[in-house]
Write a protein that binds this DNA or RNA. Structure first.
Length: 679
DNA sequence: GCCA
DNA sequence: CAGTACG
DNA sequence: TGGCCGATACTG
């Protein structure tokens, strides 16, 4: 392993691929894979004569091509893709079993099929999240399951649950169909319709209510990293109350952050009162010292806040950090979205499924009325279609969305979701790692690590846990100042903005995004003479940061293309690095606490496109996607190196300020605090 | 999954 | 090329 | 029914 620590090679150690890592641990692979275990439904029995006519008829009637469609690309996704179904053969004819399996696949779930070699029922039950049967007697079901499965608590449902889901067009709660374990509340007979016993379902579900405070995935965290999340939630709840949160200091040594004092922003569509929002701009002159007075990094935004409008485009809708009205619903749908991300394949339209959820979630988050009062209003929200509308109704009828609840209860989902938090691990990597038996950070690192397999296991375990911790605002500012100072030494007269979640007002950030450019206002040196100078400047600063032992790793330094066809186009110079900041000045007694490694993005751009770069790095993700869509629609293309007209590619328009871009695109200026369009 |  | 990152 | 952010950029 090349010494990546302190001796930072300008060749990046890279964001390593988990996939390509050492293939050591495969011992525990077998029974834990959610994917590898599933076998496609047998397709031969398409016209099984002895199969119950009703079932086949149902499938055929609603989706003519369902039976011929390959398992794995369901035409309707009604069950969570993480649903793994085992069909108990008892009392069911083979044709009936096959039909059920096809229905399972059709609904988007996976069949768990016991291989003929391992005749053990227990083994295949190990994969299953649900068992289907014709049996109606709990005692018989228990016997059929065997000891091991029983201890795992996989519920046995009557198979009519499947057709109920198909009919409803959405996954329905399974309490009414559950045979074993027997529910305390007398569940309706298996054939009863789900809606008939809605109140019973409510009771049955009450032991697992949809609550925004549930964090099942926390189990996986290495350290006690819950506090930051809670901090952020406290802030959110304070915002909901319209009050102030007293943010307890958790990140000792770095002073307290004060985002609890952010006032609630009320879009004019809700309250006729004059919209007043805040902008966050880090400028060295407004450095935070103590915090009796308003937080210095928060600058009032005095302009008018755009009113809510029912646009399918997030950039037209003011969206605060948390919805004051519908956040629990947003959180519920987000669970489903993440599961779609984890399971989406590359080939099908699957890949846009999660994006559709993302847009709907964003639209609901921005919706300025409580849907609880009138859930039917949801179908009028642009971005909410037939399917998600059903989910909304279900949420207010039952208190949860059945699919989301099922996902929450799925341990494999929780684990894979937690893998996504690691740098360099995406959906494919998370799936693969899980499949190979990884269940923890340690496992992940020994599989090859997310962030650099050159780091090796030890280094990996040393750095990655730190990177999971979110960064308080105060420290974001401190780090940005360190970096800006280095730029000033080499090229005086630079301005900078801390972008990302920080700029959107979040209490903590996953990393620090610093956008810098020569400031024409105050530059004694003036603008950089050329893009080459710009690139060189960045490298000089990196060198300096390395010397000072502030920067410990270079993740990557972008070498963007200089050409666009014939034309030379301007680019941003981007460095993704890891820093180990010295303790904050004034940390006092708490200075004993060791600092953490932090991810930092340094973006060096030109004054003429400063607005575009800041806009592009402020987010949120959904906001960026949608403002780009809007740009397309208006005959432009936008990205963080500038705005260009489609007719004249190669000519980058001057956009020194964010407002310039909003204006050109016909979008009302949205202050950063209202661009929180992701769940 | 949603929409032009 | 797929996978991932970056908002 | 086609398109969904970026003529992103990097790694293996």
């Amino acid at each position: 392993m090349s010494s990546t620590r302190l001796g930072v090679p300008l060749r990046s150690p890279g964001r390593a691929r988990l996939v390509s890592a050492t293939s050591a641990t495969s011992s525990q692979t077998a029974p834990s894979s959610p994917l590898g275990s599933a076998a496609p439904a047998p397709s031969r029995a398409g016209s099984g004569a002895s199969a119950p006519r009703t079932l086949h008829a149902l499938v055929r009637a609603r989706t003519p091509d369902a039976l011929s469609a390959p398992a794995g690309s369901p035409s309707k996704r009604i069950l969570a893709p993480s649903t793994r179904v085992h069909v108990l053969p008892d009392k069911l004819g083979q044709a009936h079993i096959d039909a059920l399996r096809q229905l399972v696949a059709h609904l988007g779930a996976l069949n768990v099929v016991r291989s003929s070699h391992t005749a053990s029922v227990a083994v295949s039950l190990d994969y299953a999240t649900v068992v289907l049967s014709e049996i109606r007697a709990p005692k018989r079901a228990e016997r059929a399951l065997g000891d091991e499965a029983e201890s795992r608590g996989v519920p046995v449902l009557h198979h009519s649950w499947l057709t109920a889901c198909l009919e409803a067009g959405i996954q329905v709660p399974h309490e009414a169909y559950q045979i074993y374990p027997r529910l305390t509340a007398p569940a309706a007979s298996a054939s009863a319709s789900a809606s008939a016993s809605a109140s019973a379902l409510k009771r049955a579900a009450s032991n697992e209510p949809a609550s925004p405070r549930r964090h099942p995935e926390k189990i996986l965290r290495l350290e006690e990293s819950g506090t930051e999340e809670e901090q952020e939630q406290d802030e959110a709840y304070a915002a909901l109350r319209g009050g102030y949160a007293s943010a307890e200091e958790e990140e000792g040594g770095y002073g307290s952050h004060e985002e609890g004092t952010l006032p609630v922003m009320v879009p004019r569509g809700i309250d006729k009162g004059k919209g007043r929002a805040l902008d966050v701009d880090a400028s060295p002159s407004r450095r935070a010292s103590a915090s009796p007075t308003p937080p210095p990094h928060v600058v009032a935004y005095e302009g008018a806040v755009p009113a809510w409008q029912n646009s399918a485009n997030a950039c037209f809708r003011p969206t605060p950090i948390r919805s004051m009205f519908n956040q629990p619903l947003v959180d519920e749908l987000e669970v489903i979205r993440v599961s779609r991300v984890l399971f989406e394949k590359n080939g099908a339209r699957d890949q846009h499924n999660s994006a559709a959820y993302g847009r709907a979630i964003s639209a609901i988050k921005a919706y300025p009325h409580p849907l609880a009062k009138d859930p039917k209003k949801a179908k009028e929200i642009a971005g909410v279609g037939a399917k998600i509308y059903k989910a909304v109704l279900q949420f207010y009828e039952l208190g949860y969305v059945a699919e989301a609840r099922a996902i929450r209860g799925d341990q494999s989902h929780a684990i894979m979701k937690s893998f996504l938090d690691f740098y360099g691990v995406g959906p494919a990597g998370a799936r693969k790692a899980y499949q190979q038996g990884a269940r923890s950070l340690q496992d992940l690192c020994s599989l090859g690590g997310s962030y650099s397999d050159r780091l090796g296991r030890e280094e990996c375990l040393r750095i990655l846990p730190d990177l999971l911790h979110r960064i308080p605002r105060r420290e974001c500012e401190f780090i940005a100042e360190l970096i800006h100072d280095e730029f000033e030494k080499i090229h005086p007269g630079m301005k900078y903005t801390i972008c990302g979640g920080y700029r959107r007002g979040k209490a903590t950030s996953g990393d620090v995004d610093v956008v810098l450019a020569p400031d024409p206002e105050k530059a004694p040196v003036g603008d950089l003479k050329s893009l080459k100078h710009q690139t060189r400047l960045l490298h000089q600063v990196l060198e300096a940061l390395k010397k000072k032992a502030v920067m410990t790793h270079i993740v990557s330094v972008a070498q963007p293309s200089e050409y666009y066809g014939e034309a030379i186009v301007p680019h941003c110079d981007i460095a993704e690095i890891v820093v180990l900041p010295p303790s904050l000045p004034g940390a006092g007694a708490d200075a004993t606490k060791r600092p953490r490694y932090r991810r930092v993005d340094i973006i060096l751009t030109r004054a003429e496109v400063y607005g575009a770069t800041v806009l592009g790095w402020t987010g949120s993700k959904q906001f960026e996607k949608d403002i780009r869509r809007q740009a397309r629609q208006q005959g432009y293309k936008f990205h963080s190196t500038g705005l260009v007209r489609l007719e004249q590619p190669g000519v980058t328009l001057d956009t020194p300020q964010e407002q310039d871009i909003f204006e050109l695109l016909g979008v009302p200026y949205m202050p950063p605090h209202l661009r929180n369009c992701d769940a």
